[in-house]
């Protein structure tokens, strides 16, 4: 038992194992694709911006668990992550404010008909999609950065 444990410890770091890394490498693209699917199909099937964002963020959490923090930060730096989060919040509030500017209530998408004439019903459907994209981006960024900050105690160096 002790021998086995030492062999495992000297071989690699604690969290690293080839099986986990390969499985994560296999799964991450599909998880991200499914996250995009859930965001895009948010209006007529279960799901939506928040759930899709959580799926996208959890793909980065999976990478952070199987590899280490440096690998994840090389793929998606903190600056890009914060940019995505703020872009999401900007899309959400921007669409809402545009509706208010063009004469409707806040987030009353039918008012955007003045901008591109699609008809108020089409705009209500499309406006929900725009807002879902914003929510998804913001949630993805917050999920990933929550894990990175908590997992490395704010240092952003090692990770779990």
């Amino acid at each position: 038992m002790r021998q086995l444990q030492q062999r495992v410890e000297t071989q690699q770091q604690v969290g690293e194992s080839l099986i986990t890394q390969t499985a994560v490498r296999l799964l991450v693209p599909f998880v991200q694709l499914f996250g995009l699917y859930v965001i895009v199909h948010g209006h007529y099937s279960p799901g939506g911006g928040f759930q899709g964002g959580v799926l996208l963020g959890s793909s980065f959490i999976m990478l952070g668990l199987a590899y280490d923090q440096k690998t994840v930060l090389r793929l998606m730096s903190e600056r890009t992550n914060i940019l995505f989060g703020n872009l999401g919040a900007l899309i959400f509030t921007g669409v809402g404010a545009l509706c208010a500017i063009f004469g409707g209530l806040f987030l009353d998408y039918s008012a955007l008909d003045v901008l591109i004439p699609l008809g108020p019903i089409e705009w209500r459907s499309f406006g929900i999609f725009l807002v879902e994209v914003g929510v998804g981006l913001a949630v993805m960024s917050i999920m990933a950065s929550l894990f990175w900050d908590l997992g490395s105690a704010g240092q952003m160096d090692e990770g779990l």
Partner: peptide, 22 residues
Amino acid sequence: VFIYVASPTATHALTRTALVLG
């Protein structure tokens, strides 16, 4: 297919962590 990839991996990761933690 997803379960066939993910579930054994999760079991492997749990067992390995338990082994390392002694």
